[in-house]
């Protein structure tokens, strides 16, 4: 549960739910997040859930740390809709031109390329959080045998749609962006759609995700 509330600067609350990253702690974070969203507290400008923390930003001309903290502590956070998570199927092309770091993964982990891909495709992932860049989902947990740290020198440009893994996580680059994750494939699906203003993300925190392999031809035709 919520363990501690600190101030993050003079305009945000830093709510600590624990040090570990696991689904139980993350579910607590998401539950607080959803409840707070519904409450729509005066002065709150943003609520940012992550693996095990929740940042609540506020307008300092409307409310301050002490009074918002008291409100949060006294909230009756209901156990709601934890089973409402959806399963999202994401197509991925794993051809060499997209799997930019497969060779590195194979060499460093000393596992055949095919086995890495198989192991990646075999699991169902959980969306812990979204963000960094618009709509980027942070998914977990990948099989322990294919875990590797980030690239020593991050890429200046990771292509849009790239699917990357690092440590226990997997993500999808919704835009071309700098980044240091190990890229293993690319999805043609629009994970973030700005034209769908009320529901711009196809993967939201709490959702479950499975990847299915497509070939280059299917990849190219996907958005036709």
């Amino acid at each position: 549960m919520l363990k501690n509330i600190l101030n993050l600067g003079d305009a945000a609350l830093y709510c600590d739910f624990g040090d570990e990253i696991n689904r139980e702690i993350n579910s607590n974070v998401i539950r607080y997040f959803k409840n707070l969203q519904k409450l729509d507290l005066k002065g709150v400008t943003n609520i940012t859930p992550s693996y095990n923390k929740l940042i609540i930003s506020y307008d300092l001309s409307i409310i301050n740390f002490q009074s918002l903290k008291e409100k949060i502590i006294n909230l009756d956070i209901k156990k709601t809709e934890n089973n409402k998570s959806k399963i999202i199927k994401i197509p991925i092309c794993l051809d060499d031109e997209f799997s930019l770091d497969l060779k590195r993964l194979s060499e460093k982990l000393k596992i055949e390329k095919g086995e890495i891909l198989q192991s990646f495709l075999n699991k169902e992932y959980f969306c812990y959080m979204t963000g960094f860049i618009a709509g980027m989902p942070f998914l977990g947990d990948i099989d322990s045998k294919i875990r590797l740290e980030r690239l020593e020198t991050p890429r200046v440009k990771v292509p849009k749609g790239s699917v990357g893994i690092t440590e226990q996580f997997c993500n999808i680059y919704t835009f071309e962006s700098p980044g240091g994750w190990n890229i293993i494939g690319n999805t043609p699906i629009k994970v973030f759609d700005k034209f769908n203003e009320s529901n711009p993300l196809i993967i939201n925190p709490g959702d479950r995700v499975v990847f299915y392999r497509i070939n280059k031809e299917e990849y190219l035709k996907f958005n036709e």
Binding site: L8, A12, I21, T48, P49, S50, Y51, I55, M129, F138
Partner: peptide, 10 residues
């Protein structure tokens, strides 16, 4: 650290 939310000025 484990990735977490940011605000401007951090």
């Amino acid at each position: 650290i484990k990735s977490e939310g940011l605000i401007k000025g951090v």
